[in-house]
Design a binder for these strands. Structure first.
Lengths: 336, 336
DNA sequence: TTGTAGGCGTTATCAG
DNA sequence: CTGATAACGCCTACAA
């Protein structure tokens, strides 16, 4: 590999001049610049990110810490991040979290000891330790799909989203609406889901009774969704509509209904969450979560934090959108 | 951030000694070591990966280039890689490929100009340019889920896998077996799928007729699977069994059958590929692809290449496994 | 406008 | 066993 010194020697200039050409400094004579450029081309020289990082004190690398629970969601967010980074010179190092130990390790060392100059934390609740480390190292960090007063964030307004979904079901005439939700961050079971708040608030606003037995919190799998519907249908007063906290769970609800001969949407209306690929294909009415947008804006926030660290942390809230397909029954109702 | 010099000063030793303690060199007096260790703890010192990388000439970073087509597959492979790396000090930088331009950019600069000391290339066919770059930079690379004579690789034997699946259907009495496949690498449409070879070979061995109209190559979506089955059922002699090249497509086949009132497995037997999460839940008979294992072994190969670059490139082939559930009809047949 | 020298944080070599 | 000191590849004053 050619170094900056090789280029300097070949072009008969000092390394400083080569460096200036590299950084596009205006203070270099056009002809010198041309000569250096030519030498760079000829040698196929590419500056070493390592040397540069050390000298500049900036590694040009971002770290993203992301759980593995909802694969589709996470890949989409990641892709949003990548696209936003494509124009820049930043590299992306990624740490996936599957078990509590993974999370603890990642949180104990955000930025991987200086390897990254900023961190994107996706769908994970910051611990006290993480906050302390971030503060101690002055490492810029942005929360994606989560909120915390101490950190900038990009998140969907889950409460508003739930309100949208539940309101839609109420308008369609449903009065017994169940919730099949999951924990946003399985490692932080205590934090109440924004969706649940929105669900309850909307029912209350509509003058509908809150029934604890209608609120099911399960994990992400379709199986869990199936089990949840089975339990709900076994109730003395089964719900006529279900709002699922993820499309994956909604898929399970759909399958359970099919197996029990419960017609969707006639006997049971269903609204999902996220709008994954399969939702369109199943005709699932759902809340569209702009997953790539979350990633893109997260990067934007982080890059902004680099430039003006003194500015107050921004909290970006994305507005949800309801995608009406046919599992909610609205299309059929309109046709009547 | 404390540097090695701070530690040296505080512990009243030279930086060399601190470095030796860090690397666990035996040539340091126990009491000196203890003193240095204590100082390290007290200062909370962590060596900078950047400085270390520069001095050692090794960045302790691996790059993985991976397409986005099958999300589940790719996340699992990635996780296998991460788990294998958890014990080491390696970081993982990832480049996701969605469009040809993404691939070209990644292939034009494998290792991101020295940022990574090795590359894992997942499900992507190396181009001549990539091979040239790898050779020019002497960058170790390992192919995952793909094979090339010039590079070490870890791959499933797709041909054997297809044979397993088709043979199973033949044994169950099927004589009209269709294939709903996809391209392993959509950017390299020319390369024939190993699955198709296995499919044809097995049919031939069983003395069954090869029907070109039974071979459908589509993309990964369930929609494509649905369309493929629709086309197959419209044939004068529709197949009685389908072997799908991915579970995602199999899901579409399943749904299309349901919509047309074709009973699975009684009227149509189905075998998928990959064994994604949803396969178990749908009762889909399928080929289990050890996705995490692919990632884990890829890392192992790469680390091995670091140590002994002179050794010939290893080609690891993983053996496929058939998971019998109920869409193939074997369970029902056994019960009779 | 350009070259030189010092420094970024580490490792490795080489005397002592 | 240990302490200087020279790399590693680059950037950035500072001086010319």
């Amino acid at each position: 590999m050619a170094t900056i010194r090789d280029v300097a020697r070949e072009a008969a200039v000092g390394v400083g001049t080569v460096s200036r050409v590299l950084s596009g400094s205006p203070q270099v004579a056009p002809e010198t610049r041309a000569r250096v450029q030519a030498t760079i081309e000829r040698l196929g020289y590419r500056p070493s990110p390592l040397g540069r990082a050390l000298a500049r004190g900036r590694s040009q690398t971002l770290e993203v810490i992301v759980p593995l629970f909802t694969r589709y969601f996470y890949v989409e967010v990641l892709r949003g991040i990548e696209v936003a980074l494509a124009d820049t010179d930043y590299a992306l190092v990624i740490r996936t979290i599957e078990r509590p130990a993974d999370r603890d390790r990642a949180f104990a060392d955000p930025g991987s000891r200086g390897r990254a100059e900023g961190v994107l934390i996706v769908s994970l609740t910051p611990t006290a330790e993480l906050l302390a480390r971030l503060a101690a190292t002055a490492l810029p960090a942005v929360l994606v799909n989560n909120v915390h007063p101490a950190l900038p964030s990009v998140a969907l307004d889950h409460e508003a989203a739930a309100a949208l979904a539940v309101q839609h079901l109420v308008r369609l005439g449903h009065r017994r609406i169940a919730l099949v939700d999951h924990l946003e961050d399985p490692f932080a079971p205590s934090s109440p889901s924004g969706r649940r708040c929105g669900y309850r608030a909307t029912l209350a606003r509509a003058g509908l009774e809150l029934r604890p037995e209608y609120e099911r919190v399960t994990d992400f799998s379709p199986e869990a969704g199936m089990a949840a519907l089975d339990a709900l249908l076994a109730l003395p007063q089964p719900p006529t509509a279900v709002f699922a906290g993820s499309d994956t769970q909604a898929v399970g609800v759909l399958e359970a209904a099919r197996r029990r001969g419960v017609a969707v949407p006639d006997d049971l209306a269903l609204v999902g969450y996220n709008d994954i690929e399969m939702a369109g294909y199943l005709g699932l009415t759902t809340i569209r979560v702009p997953m790539r947008e979350l990633g893109r804006l997260g990067v934007q926030q982080l890059l902004l934090a680099f430039e003006t660290p003194e500015r107050a942390a921004g909290q970006i809230r994305l507005e949800p959108e309801l995608i009406v397909r046919h599992t909610c029954g609205a299309v059929q109702a309109a046709a009547r």
